[in-house]
Computed example of a mutant assay.
Amino acid sequence: MSSHGFGRRQFLTTAIGVAAAWTQVSGNASAATSSRSSSVQVWLTDISAKKWVVAQSDVLFRTKSTGNPLTIKVDDSVKYQRIQGFGAAMTDSSAWLINKLPTADRAKLVQKLYDPSKGISLSLIRTPMGATDFNASGDYSYDDMPAGQTDPTLSDFSVQHDEKYIIPVLRQALAQNPSAKILANPWSPPGWMKTSDSMIGGTLKSDYASTLADYFVKFIKAYDKAGVPISYITPQNEPMGTPSWPGMFLSAYQESAVIQEIGQAFAANRISTKILAWDHNWDVPSYPETIFSDPAASQYTAGTGWHIYSGNPTYQTLVHNDFPGKETYITEASGGVWQSDDETAFNDALGTWIIKGMRNWANGVMLWNTALDPKLGPLNSDTNGIPMCR
């Protein structure tokens, strides 16, 4: 997070805090329909006055004579999506920074972020499978091999890297909020599975689709054994992009084939983890629709993951209307130096990503890095990450 002003330093926590507060308000409002004496808790954010999620007096439900002609009708028969929650990504950089805190400070921070009663009750956590552009330790996958060598049986698979600080921080988060759900996905599989023989660039070699499925199975089993169950995965982060940091191009038809392999592998291993398609920007709805239109892949695909960097939330509704049985998640949304001021940053997060996201069928919203240092890092030292995200 940036060091320039309160709003920018604490923007992520503040924005998600509003979401958590809003969830609590919604729950109280629903309960209040059965009791006119029930109250609704209210928080106020006034950017111009530098007030951020400040508790206000409770509002009571009660009968009162009024000349106001406004009528609010609550129709319990109208049902929309089930809300799974709100949260942010526990990237390698975020976990590394949080783990560097003194023990007492780390415990206090994790409580403030995840505890349902003493914190803001974050309930969705995205964790990358291997390196991204936000890594304190450089590039890595769970089965790295020397250039030119392969490991099709995944005999060298290991999550040892994550055992140092990522898994411990995730366990702490789940201890505070046991109902929290974790989404995991790779920016790149091991380089030897790809045409580039590297975690940078390239695409998946077709004969490694089933091996990649086994890679997911081993990851989920290893994390589950470590006390970190995985609720959702996506096959590939931003599959239409090939950045200068770990990434991989994967067409909709390729991802459809990969999802079939993963779905079959999950079924064979009795893994209940849900698969989400796409995991990229709003403005390419044809990608998830291609997968949902393929019955062989659609049967294994629970929904769509969306990013917010181009397009707008109405594309979520377009896909929902065509495939109403599929779930919808905003899986990545980041503020950054491109936002001109605190008001823009706050309105983007709360107004567009959270409120408009929910109004367009999102079951949940996940922002990007949970924590960064004042230099907007640490960035992956092996690649050319850009210090732009807060």
Rank of each mutant, 00 (worst) to 15 (best):
R8L: 10
F11A: 13
F11M: 14
T14P: 01
A15R: 02
T23P: 03
A32K: 04
R36H: 12
Q41L: 07
L44H: 07
D46H: 14
W52A: 09
V54A: 03
D58S: 07
V59Y: 03
L60R: 14
F61K: 13
K64L: 11
K64R: 12
P69T: 09
V74I: 15
D76G: 15
V78M: 15
A88Q: 08
M90K: 08
D92G: 08
D92L: 05
D92H: 09
S93P: 11
S94K: 00
I125F: 12
P128I: 06
S141G: 02
M145T: 10
K164Y: 02
K164E: 11
I166L: 13
I167C: 01
V169Y: 14
A173N: 11
L174F: 14
Q176F: 12
T195M: 08
D197L: 04
M199K: 08
M199G: 01
S206L: 02
A213V: 05
D224C: 01
A226V: 09
G227M: 09
I230N: 01
I233T: 11
Q236T: 01
P239L: 06
F249W: 11
L250M: 15
S251H: 00
Q254P: 07
V258T: 10
Q260W: 00
I262K: 01
A265V: 04
R270S: 13
S272M: 06
I275Q: 07
D283V: 10
D283I: 09
T301H: 10
G303D: 09
G303R: 13
G311Q: 04
N312Y: 09
T314A: 10
E327R: 10
I330H: 02
E332N: 09
W338H: 13
D342C: 02
A345G: 13
T352C: 00
I354P: 00
R359Y: 04
A371I: 10
P378K: 00
M388Y: 10
